[in-house]
Design a protein around this nucleic acid. Structure first.
Lengths: 196, 196
DNA sequence: TCCTCACTAGATAGATCGATCTAGCGAGAC
DNA sequence: GTCTCGCTAGATCGATCTATCTAGTGAGGA
């Protein structure tokens, strides 16, 4: 069955998210995936490094779709941005503050120690930024303002995850949700003024 | 000489910041500190765990003073907030994107795996939030708004560090600096309107 | 039927991990 | 002088890490 590769990726996504890259052993991943040792090196000949690169890319795409879904679900972009932060907070509560961003911990761990994985995380972050930028432009934010604003929103989300997981409260996520909604509203008003 | 304890703490601060907790070995810390193995367990009987807790507390205080210094250096709080982000970006450039927040990587690693260290990071973050809240109130932000705003500013800083270290650009830090300055300015204007 | 090959399975190697152990150094007390 | 004790020094232990190795399984094609 080829599902073994999928189970390994699912397990590594979970464990990297909770414990990081260096904190997660190959044996632990395989135990959670219910897969034998040899299977890993068959599907990922490059070992842990190749597995991590594949995990980052896959988890990054999945999380982008999850967040994008929230940003398109509600009535308007301002409300959706705030709700996305609130929703992320609810997920944290539901998972004992474990399931935040799937690649954040790994990104910080490898940024100065593993160039291959650093590039993998950089690509994911860039794709998120591009995606949110497009979404903001469609909603009416001026082209010149959209990318910096996307960058700020994503930074606030990642930063609020750090505070939330450390303090076990969603205060930072809620405060950031309100603040980011205000920034988007202000940007939309500026655009409306300029084109009036 | 009692400087050994200090050297060990300085080395662990450096290495935890760059590589995280699980990614840094005790032997590596002692090698960088120029200290023998036995000294660590004399000064920190609790081993790596106790060393990490002490490192988090000390590095947290040091970094708070560093940032507070920047936030009090310039002409007004709005300018100072923006400059603090720019200055953090310059530090990253000067250190090959290694020296960001000294406890962020560790905080994410231990949040779901080590309750002692999770609490240590939570205390540092709380003290930072309290400190920035007070600073904003002194600058004229309404009491009810000050803490959420402090929370947002610190979240944006931590999140921008993630993007900066992964992508090796300071774009996120600059965008966040501008946005946070705008949020502070808006909060000050609201306070001025309310008391007019 | 039998061969092939993608995949599973786990033993094992070699390195490194954190922690403990005993031994020794050297400044100050008396 | 010598005794004490805070501290240095590093050998060593058992556990665990990633990676490699050989062997075995089973479905599909000729």
């Amino acid at each position: 069955m080829t599902g073994t590769r999928e189970r390994i990726l699912a397990a590594s996504t979970d464990l990297f998210r909770r414990q990081g890259y260096t904190g997660t052993g190959i044996k632990q991943i395989l135990a959670e995936a219910g897969a034998p040792f040899g299977s890993l090196y068959h599907h990922f000949p490059g070992g842990k490094n190749e597995l991590a690169a594949a995990t980052i890319a896959r988890a990054g795409d999945e999380y982008a779709q999850l967040v994008a879904g929230k940003l398109l679900a509600g009535p308007d972009i301002v409300t959706n941005v705030r709700d996305a932060f609130v929703s992320a907070g609810q997920t944290l509560i539901d998972t004992s503050y474990a399931d935040a961003c799937p690649i954040e911990t790994v990104a910080l761990e490898v940024a100065s120690t593993n160039e291959t994985l650093r590039l993998a995380t950089a690509e994911v972050f860039e794709s998120w930024t591009v995606g949110l930028t497009a979404l903001l432009e469609v909603a009416g934010v001026a082209a010149a303002e959209a990318r910096p604003l996307a960058s700020v929103i994503l930074s606030a989300l990642e930063g609020a995850f750090v505070f939330a997981r450390a303090s076990r409260t969603t205060d930072a996520l809620e405060a950031c949700g309100e603040a980011m909604a205000a920034l988007v509203r202000a940007a939309l008003e500026r655009t409306a003024d300029a084109t009036r």
